[in-house]
Amino acid sequence: MVIGAAVVLFIASFLSLVSAPACSGEFCPRESSSTFNAWDSLGLLMSMFLAGIIAAVLIVVARGLPTPRKVAGLELGQFGVALAVFSAWTAFWTIIDAGSAGAGMILGLIAALALAAGAVASPLVPALKAPLVGAPKPAVASPYGAQPGAGYGYPGGQQPSYGGQSAPGGYGYPGGATQDPQAAAPQAPAAGQPAPDGQAAPAADASGFAPFWFAVPVARPLYPEDGSPTPIAELAPGTWYLAVDQRGSGLVAQTQDGRRGLLQDTTGIQRG
Rank of each mutant, 00 (worst) to 15 (best):
A5Q: 09
A6K: 00
L9F: 01
F10I: 12
L15H: 00
L15S: 01
L17E: 03
V18H: 02
V18M: 11
A22E: 11
G25F: 03
R30H: 08
T35H: 10
F36A: 09
A38W: 02
D40P: 01
L42D: 05
A51M: 09
A51E: 13
A55D: 07
V60I: 09
V60N: 03
P66L: 15
R69Q: 13
L76C: 03
A82Y: 15
A82D: 15
A88K: 01
A91G: 13
I95L: 14
I96S: 05
D97G: 09
A98S: 06
I106D: 00
L113E: 06
A114N: 03
A114E: 02
A116F: 00
G118W: 01
A119T: 04
V125H: 12
K129S: 14
L132G: 11
K137P: 03
V140S: 05
Y144H: 11
Y154C: 02
S161A: 15
Y162M: 09
S166H: 11
A177T: 13
Q179L: 03
Q179M: 07
D180W: 12
A183K: 06
P186G: 15
Q187M: 14
A191V: 00
Q193S: 03
G198N: 15
A200N: 12
P202H: 04
D205A: 10
F209T: 02
P211H: 02
F212I: 10
F212L: 06
F214R: 04
V216S: 08
A219E: 14
R220L: 10
L222R: 03
P229M: 03
E234A: 12
A236S: 04
G238A: 06
S249I: 10
T255C: 03
Q256H: 15
R260F: 04
G261E: 08
G261R: 01
L263A: 09
D265L: 08
T266S: 08
G272E: 09
